[in-house]
Write a protein that binds this DNA or RNA. Structure first.
Lengths: 128, 128
DNA sequence: ATGTTGCATCGACGGACATCAATACAACCG
DNA sequence: CGGTTGTATTGATGTCCGTCGATGCAACAT
């Protein structure tokens, strides 16, 4: 499940151009929350940067000082967020990136070309 | 503290092209964690999408069913993540987006142009 | 069948986090 | 000066989350 709001799409408007309504915010927060952990970020980058597009769990687990159940738990969260998918092949399970989701995030964080850098006027009141 | 990118830079390599080392992961996770809450996402989008580039706290608070200290707390987390900045002008405090940070995130999530969509072939067991 | 290996789920525990009421601080106004 | 309004901080509380050991399930091997 998770699958962006059935029909809400939220394709382009962008996080930075119009206020999010609460439903969109809840949905998006789930994905960002999945990225809000160092272990999951490293897992994602290991999966995404792998040449063949796939990584076996048995190659991921030994890269961390964590128990196997913990890694499995993090992979589950990344999968539930729609960031990765997995496929069992014989004894082994292979994970791969779902680029549509990272593409969507990148789009949401990219401001439309025209947006001017906010006048950057005084930096005076820098709160210590 | 926190102070986005103390000295770690992590400028370009991209989350999806090479495995993150742990220090980079910890640093990045702090930012994504700040985005991993619906209230903070809505606050950020309200601030970022505001015409003048600035929003007064007094315009943000009434948009939520939350206490004023709670909103203030969320704004503090967004600021510590380097996503927004604030400036006091008279009685009021104005928040504005720090676009460098969202730009950095968008860049990290954007795959280098050449990256082929992982052959998407069959969704079944199809394997060599 | 029995054993073995790879991965997922379960139950528990400690620390982190979102929230609030109360309070403190800052700037204005009489 | 004291009073009022806007915002931040403090302290407490309930819930969520990361982690583990133990266990379960799937796919091979013998």
């Amino acid at each position: 499940m998770v699958e962006a709001t059935g029909g809400g799409d939220t394709c382009c408007p962008g996080l930075l151009t119009a206020p999010l309504d609460e439903e969109q915010a809840v949905d998006l927060a789930r994905v960002f929350k999945a990225l809000g952990d160092p272990v999951r970020l490293r897992l994602l980058s290991m999966i995404a940067s792998k040449a063949g597009g796939e990584v076996c769990v048995c190659d991921l687990t030994p890269a961390f000082d964590l128990s196997q159940p913990t890694i499995s738990h993090h992979l589950k969260l990344l999968r539930q967020a729609g960031l990765i998918d997995c496929e069992r092949r014989g004894t082994w399970v292979y994970y791969r990136l779902l680029p549509e989701t990272t593409d969507r995030l990148a789009g949401l964080l990219t401001r439309p070309a025209g947006t001017p850098l906010p006048d950057r006027r005084v930096r005076a009141g820098a709160v210590s």
